[in-house]
Design a protein around this nucleic acid. Structure first.
Length: 263
DNA sequence: CTGGGGAGGGGGCCC
DNA sequence: AGGGCCCCCTCCCCA
């Protein structure tokens, strides 16, 4: 099973497809120098919300969203807060700036009333002291006293997505804050490796070569898609006519063109 | 219309 | 905990 689908997707039909115009609204880098990822910030100070729904421990509302930008060396090592180095990558200019004073020991274990400053610390405590799973029915926020929902939920304040782990939410938040900025064109990306792939479009580097022909690609996924073209039996098959296609999108086109009207 | 390349997005796993 | 990477998906564009 594709790992990518283990988490429910909310926008199956349309994806956040960050075009330049969209990026402009989401980032605030200065085109002239592209110094850092300037992200939506002061106004959405707590984009990351711990929104668990079960009843065991409490937290204040905001949690930090640690973002590590891949930007030109301008980042001074930000002093880690009590949240385990979750200081903002850009010195708090991104969204979700945690306020250390506010988030001290916000995670409380209701089994022994101990408090911790981070989810991980609490998780470790629960695991070691109570043999409890790190997350699960022991989470709750003071700000959102929802009824006993079987699983904790971490909600993104930028959109309606929710995750069962803080790490997953933090990763998702990056798709809003786009901390990785291309020094050449200023385009921003959510992850360093996305930026690296983008930079190859500037350098022309194509490290992924096809073993069956002379083509090379800058992106492994594109090589994989290309390899399908060398295969006699393609990966994606029409359920009606058994025709195979190298890409899902081609199969969709095929279906929409009339072979499988119902689909 | 179809096939394919280019580019970029997402979540999960591993270290 | 965070970075790196994997795999998969999707859209745009062009031949």
């Amino acid at each position: 099973m594709p790992r990518s689908f283990l988490v429910k997707k909310y926008f199956s039909n349309k994806k956040p497809y960050y075009r330049e115009s969209q990026l402009e609204s989401q980032t605030a880098f200065v085109p002239e120098s592209f110094p850092l990822a300037e992200l939506p910030t002061q106004n959405n100070a707590s984009a990351l919300t711990c929104h668990p729904s079960s009843p065991f421990f409490t937290s204040s509302d905001a949690l930090p969203a640690p973002l590590s930008p891949i930007t030109p060396a301008s980042l001074p090592p930000s002093p880690s807060s009590s949240f385990g180095g979750e200081e903002e990558e850009d010195g708090g200019r991104t969204s979700d700036p945690p306020s250390p004073e506010v988030i001290q020991n916000i995670f409380h274990c209701l089994h022994c009333s101990k408090s911790y400053g981070s989810l991980s610390a609490l998780s470790h405590h629960q695991l070691s002291s109570h043999q409890l799973p790190p997350s699960g029915p022991l989470l709750q926020t003071a700000s959102v006293p929802s009824e006993e929902s079987p699983r904790p939920a971490f909600h993104c304040k930028h959109c309606s997505k929710e995750y069962t782990s803080l790490g997953a939410l933090k990763m998702h938040i990056r798709s809003h804050t786009l901390p990785c900025v291309c020094p050449t064109c200023g385009k921003a990306f959510s992850r360093p490796w996305l930026l690296r792939g983008h930079i190859r479009t500037h350098t022309g580097e194509r490290p992924f070569a096809c073993q069956h022909c002379s083509r090379a690609f800058a992106d492994r996924s594109n090589l994989r898609a290309h390899l399908q073209t060398h295969s006699e039996v393609k990966k994606y098959q029409c359920g009606s006519c058994s025709r195979t296609f190298s890409r899902m999108s081609l199969l969709h086109k095929h279906n929409s063109s009339g072979c499988c009207p119902s689909s």
